[in-house]
Simulated assay, not measured.
Amino acid sequence: MKRFLLFLLILVMACTFIGCGEKPSVGDGKVQVIVSKGFGNEKLSEKAVDVAKDTTVIEVMEENFNIETAYGGGFINGIDGLKSEFTGLKKKKKIDWFYYVNGILSEVGADEYYLNPNDLVIWDYHDWDNNIYGSSIIGAYPINFTNGHDGNIYPIQILYTKRYAKEGNALLKYLKDQGVKDIELVDLEQGELENLEKNSIVIGSWEELKKINYIKEFYENGNKCGLYFKVDEEIKGLNNKGETLKTYEKGAVVASVVKEYGGAASMWLVTGNDESSIKKAIKLLYENPEKIKGRFSVLVTEKEVINIPIKN
């Protein structure tokens, strides 16, 4: 009996140190990869994959997708058979692959960006003929706020106008529950919207927000920074060339821009021309965030949530 108990003790100790009946760990965490085309309008693939420490974007892609590289291996020229229509061709079209880590367009080659557990990488195949890149997209929410980009995790201010205080508080609670530590809810008039070391989520009607010069400047240059909507008496969804494709009497948008070129701090706008639509758009962020996953920005109406820019 003593010999049997001694054997059990040794067995338990062995299982504790080397694992018993379990596969060895294959990495330090997981990252998500979404592959899409047309500015998030068509999702082609989505995978959650294991990563070890110091894993680059290119390594994840090599191990989990059929890729073709160019320019020394740091540039992805093709994914699962869908190839650049520019690189190495005589009849060139400006259509290529672009990648975003946690919602921010990366400015380094895929072989130079080192991933962290829970990062979300979006590869999108799209036209850049008008040289509009849209450096910030909403499709990595809420990971863009919890993980940041390239090690930069910024504090967050939720800036709201008074009629959206209830929804602002619910959004604050949701993001805290997701692990965001440095976040505050502030009246729009008291906020630090132009602070380049803070992410801003701005909630209010377009009638209110268009009076703020900082926001107005981005809006008026939307074709350069990737804002694909217009608001007047109606709300309009644009394509990537800035042309109106859909018009609604009432609606709201959720969109984002980087505050400065090359930066990672972003300004999110939750706005529109209808109070109930704006509240619906805010609730999307704390009740149904999966509905915006992988999207560039969205237009929210009474009946639908559509990706913008809109596909031609």
Rank of each mutant, 00 (worst) to 15 (best):
L82E: 13
L172G: 09
W128G: 01
I122P: 03
Y174H: 06
G134S: 14
T146A: 02
Y100G: 02
E197T: 01
K198P: 00
D129M: 03
N130S: 07
I122W: 10
D177V: 07
Q190L: 12
K83D: 06
V202E: 03
A110Y: 07
K210M: 12
F145A: 06
N152A: 14
F98V: 03
Y164D: 01
N130T: 11
H126A: 05
F145C: 08
E112A: 03
W128P: 00
T87I: 15
E112H: 05
E189G: 05
Y100T: 07
F145R: 11
F98M: 11
I122Y: 09
Y160G: 02
D182P: 02
K91H: 10
N116D: 15
L185Q: 07
E207S: 08
L193N: 09
Y125L: 06
K92N: 07
E184F: 07
Y160T: 08
N131Q: 11
I201C: 03
T146I: 14
W97Q: 06
E167T: 14
E197H: 07
I138V: 14
G168F: 04
D124Q: 06
L120P: 00
I158E: 09
G134N: 14
G204Y: 13
N152I: 15
G139P: 12
K93T: 05
I201Y: 10
T161D: 06
N199A: 08
I138N: 09
Y125G: 05
K211W: 04
I95F: 13
L196R: 13
T87L: 14
L193M: 15
I137F: 07
E208T: 14
N169P: 00
I132C: 11
T87H: 13
Y99E: 07
K210V: 10
P142G: 01
D129N: 03
F98Y: 13
V108C: 04
D187K: 09
Y100N: 00
I156H: 03
I137G: 08
Y125M: 12
N199W: 09
E192I: 00
L171Q: 01
V202D: 01
I203A: 10
I183V: 03
N102R: 11
G88A: 10
R163L: 10
L171I: 02
L175S: 02
K83N: 12
L120R: 14
K166S: 07
G168K: 04
P142K: 10
Y125W: 05
F86H: 08
V108G: 00
D111A: 06
Y125N: 04
E184P: 00
D177P: 02
S84E: 04
Q157A: 05
V186G: 08
V121S: 02
Y113L: 14
